[in-house]
Design a protein around this nucleic acid. Structure first.
Lengths: 213, 213
DNA sequence: TGCATTTCTTAACTTTAGTCAATGAAATCG
DNA sequence: CGATTTCATTGACTAAAGTTAAGAAATGCA
């Protein structure tokens, strides 16, 4: 066993390795050899809160997998930040277009918290899959799973009102509400911070009424 | 050469075959042999306008690729139809969850027009890819492309106002506005038919002003 | 600790969307 | 072809979201 000690601040080897194994084994059981192959190939990076991983116009060289922390994706339109995604523990993310076609990114990635990531989808990938062909199926399943999730998110976004979108987020990712500034959440929900504030007040008033009655 | 004659009404063999080749070759050049393999394996179906391909609660047995026509996807919530997708020429679609896990579908598919589809992702798939391994890469690229598109759609949905969403749709899929009833379009845009009607009036007034000045 | 900055909430007002109802146009069907 | 149903638009009204501005609360940093 070739278990490395973590040399990264505020990150724990056991936790982060479990995070990636949890992700991979959701698609089916894996052999110990394949698990170890993945763990041994882990290329980790630590970034402090506020670090920008990618800027508009830049070209990406790899994808990421969040082991600990939170990365926000946002567009800058007319000087205004439009948040379109939050990546937390167990989330893979990349800029497929920029990565494959070496085109400039249209958006930014910034760490909302101190964040540890594993690099993936880099130039060694082909060699890695050649060595561990079993893992190609896992990769395809992960891709299919991502597509499913993405479709579901768009569908629920289409069907829900702003208030319902907030309630949905509370159910699916309750941690975000506490980890992330409200104005970024509001943007992610497609509304202004003022609207989100009012929605929260409306909901808490409703909740108070239920408690009293 | 094993070119079948189309026996399906209102569908033309040459057009439909070109539709699927256009789709496949967008991911890179293909050998003539691979092209022919795909065309020979085509399993087509014709459905008349109004036909329901999938109902809530049913389990799917394959995916589809639209050769001609238009299929609408909708959820039924509180007796109300919530349209979440339109599949037109060149669009692949499936219910990944229902297909893979044999779980009941949460939504419906119905033909908005007379529609010709090719079946795909059925039980013969594994055998097919075994015979034509080259095509596995095409399948993966198609999957990646779908994921990219889906992410982009969610992002633009998050960032745009209802009016902007309508304008975006006019740009990306101008045909839909004429093929599809307004109330279904409105639902797809996350608003009521009345709102869409008002947005259209507002926009045409703006446009009139520009013309006059 | 205290000051500065960032973030969140509130309020007043404007704009836009939802709701309900009615009407007219268009498509469908026998 | 006329009758019926479906669909699109409009109007009046209500509810909710955007905008602008101000101030309170929280946070970060020296």
């Amino acid at each position: 066993m070739n278990r490395r000690k973590s040399t990264y601040p505020k990150s724990n080897s056991f936790d982060t390795e479990q995070t990636i194994l949890d992700f991979l084994t959701q698609f089916g059981p894996m052999s110990e050899a394949d698990k170890q192959a993945v763990l041994d190939s882990l290329n980790m990076r630590f970034y402090t809160k506020g670090t920008t991983l990618l800027r508009e116009g830049e070209v990406t060289r790899h994808g990421y997998f969040v082991l600990k922390g939170c990365v926000r994706q946002y567009y800058l339109v007319d000087g205004e930040e439009k948040t379109t995604a939050f990546f937390t523990e167990g989330y893979p993310f990349d800029n497929a277009d920029s990565l494959k076609n070496q085109t400039p990114s249209k958006y930014y990635w910034a760490c909302v918290e101190d964040t540890t990531v594993a690099l993936c989808g880099d130039e060694n990938e082909a060699f890695f899959f050649q060595q561990f062909p079993h893992l190609q199926k896992v990769a395809r399943l992960a891709l299919e799973g991502e597509l499913s999730k993405q479709k579901e998110m768009l569908e629920s976004y289409i069907m829900a009102s702003p208030e319902e979108r907030y309630l949905n987020l509370m159910k699916t990712r309750p941690d975000l509400v506490n980890r992330v500034p409200q104005y970024q959440l509001a943007s992610y929900l497609g509304m202004t911070p003022e609207s989100l504030s009012r929605i929260r007040r409306r909901l808490s008033q409703k909740y108070d009424l239920i408690k009293v009655n």
